[in-house]
Design a protein around this nucleic acid. Sequence first.
DNA 1: GTCTATAGGCGGATAGAC
DNA 2: GTCTATCCGCCTATAGAC
Lengths: 206, 206
Amino acid sequence: MNTLVAPTPEAGSKPAQILDAAGKLFLDHGYGAVSMDAVAKMANVSKATLYAHFGSKDELFRAMVACVSKGQTLVAICEEAKRLDVADGLRLIARHFADLVMSPRAMAGYRVVVGEAHRFPELAQAFYEAGPAKTMEQIVGYMVEVNRKGQLSIPDPQLAAEQLVGLVKSHTHLRYMLCLADRPSEQELNRIIDGAVNLFIKGYAA
Amino acid sequence: MNTLVAPTPEAGSKPAQILDAAGKLFLDHGYGAVSMDAVAKMANVSKATLYAHFGSKDELFRAMVACVSKGQTLVAICEEAKRLDVADGLRLIARHFADLVMSPRAMAGYRVVVGEAHRFPELAQAFYEAGPAKTMEQIVGYMVEVNRKGQLSIPDPQLAAEQLVGLVKSHTHLRYMLCLADRPSEQELNRIIDGAVNLFIKGYAA
DNA sequence: GTCTATAGGCGGATAGAC
DNA sequence: GTCTATCCGCCTATAGAC
């Protein structure tokens, strides 16, 4: 499944230090702008040690992305949402989805993977499958359930799930992708989420 | 306004050749992966000539992005949409917006600017203002008009515009950002656009 | 303005001792 | 496994002739 990475190295070990440093540097500055010297320095390791664990810069980058991609998913949230009424369930999902994809860490991940998608296509795909695809699956499952219970009338759950995430990311996500702001304020987030849930409920009313 | 770029050089001139080559290479491979030698070679120019016109790689990159950013906007489309009934107007806007932001050229632009947003923040901002921000303005104007005429009930036109673009980009835009597909099929596009327009109209019914 | 040729340095990767 | 020291190529940028 996850062909990219060996099991996460034990915390505190040299490989872990290296991955940690690589994460910070690559995510903050991008692949091209980070040298192996910089990684070695931040990890308090010699370059030779670095190369002993990761054979090349490419390999280190891949390992780092794989490590970062192991994000939390929305599994538990979607299960909980199914036990609430629609408005609360949608709001719960929207809220956690927003927190998930608009966190500074996630944004940095998007930026670096998107920026190198041309050169590392398999990496982009692995990132997609480990993160966004898994999340979508969960939300589609929720939509199916809502439709089955007749809470809303959702003929195409896949489409509906895509619409919900589109509504939540809306225009804001692009602004964060471009580093035009650091992270959404509580106020802005509420405005977006309330708007998304209201539109969705009214639009899919049974 | 556009502080980034001198007036577009006359077609066929050396600067134009260089910008053209830079565009193809940077957009296809990213900033870090393209050397000045490669640009000079593709432009059929010596490196010295290149540096005579663009003082550094950074400067060339900025000029290229500014050149590419001069995209068409949705001004004419939004004006036309105002003269149609809501469903047709929204569909027209959604359609042209989708064509605009999901074209291979636009996607390549997003990728390279997003990837370098950390290192070229002013560039990201200029790109945003020249493209997405202008487009949003037009769509907001359309929403205001639709609300004024009572065709729909839109209390927050800015929010509604953001929602519409979110619905159209939905999940698909991310997949193209990650190079997971080349461009949406006619069929997929119609499914997304119809879904967006239907949801929007029902959700904002007067 | 445009070229050829080259300087100068950075950065990826390795040799060899411990 | 880890270190210090070093190789070598590539890439940005420039010098100097035409």
